[in-house]
Design a protein around this nucleic acid. Structure first.
Lengths: 140, 140
DNA sequence: TTGCTCCTCACGTCACGTGAGGTGGC
DNA sequence: TTGCTCCTCACGTCACGTGAGGTGGC
């Protein structure tokens, strides 16, 4: 089947710019083929891009994503390296779990802020300044 | 009561650097008082900082946070602005839910990668490249 | 030829990081 | 005096954005 993509196709699919993809190539995160001067991306390139963007959504830097993607690669030879890999995976997982808790807390906060807004809208004059969202939440 | 804070106290409380707080002041997001040359932060300053940082966690830029904080202010809180705020909250919440799924997927993958590593360690020759996660996930 | 997408520099931007060098009060 | 935190420049960094100017094929 040999599925391949242009830079514009992948950029559109993932909602990023072509410049972003060229940037990832410049720092060695992607390595698409060429047809003349134009880049052609394989299904494997597309997968790597997807992993990079997921890392970004999670707030990882590009170098952190590079490290995590490297973990997915099984050609990581010897026993010592594998053991170090397992250790790094455990560290990453602990950090990600913390983010998970942050996220869940934030979703709950947004629910509360929205409810406050809707209450304000329902009774515009019943909400004096001293009970504004900023003030009500000021004491933690 | 007149509660006040030093730059270091607030930085430590929120897990940011003093430089970050000076930066927010430079662009007019914070306006602490002074005692001599040192900055002194009021409870209101602390609240603003908390709102800025929450915006950051939600992926907003500083100018976006500035706009939203202005909306929290009851003096600017007309009905149209509140409705826009509710809309933005709903958008952000959808994005956060996506992140939540990302995180859970990544945690699950790391579990699988770790299991693969441990299996490799137990039986070094039993894990061919064709079963790597990157390859298995290549088709979506 | 027009219109489209592709390309390579290369400077700009946003949100800080990171010293360098100095002040002030317990 | 030592040690601490505070300060102000000011250049560096990361992840791109944004033109400028040019190529290639339907």
């Amino acid at each position: 089947m040999q599925q391949s993509y242009t830079i514009r196709e992948l950029a559109k699919e993932f909602g990023i710019t072509a410049r972003t993809m060229r940037h990832y190539e410049q720092i060695g995160l992607l390595a698409p083929g060429r047809r003349g001067q134009s880049r052609i991306y394989s299904a494997a390139d597309r997968t790597r891009l997807r992993l990079i963007l997921r890392g970004k959504r999670l707030g990882l830097g590009l170098e952190e994503s590079r490290a995590i993607i490297a973990m997915y690669d099984p050609d990581h030879g010897n026993e010592q390296q594998l053991l170090r890999l397992v250790e790094r995976i455990r560290e990453q997982r602990a950090a990600l779990r913390e983010r998970l808790r942050d996220l869940q807390a934030m979703l709950a906060e947004l629910d509360a802020v929205e409810a406050g807004c809707l209450a304000s809208l329902a009774q515009p004059r019943a909400v004096p300044a001293s009970t504004s969202i900023a003030r009500r939440r000021a004491n933690r």
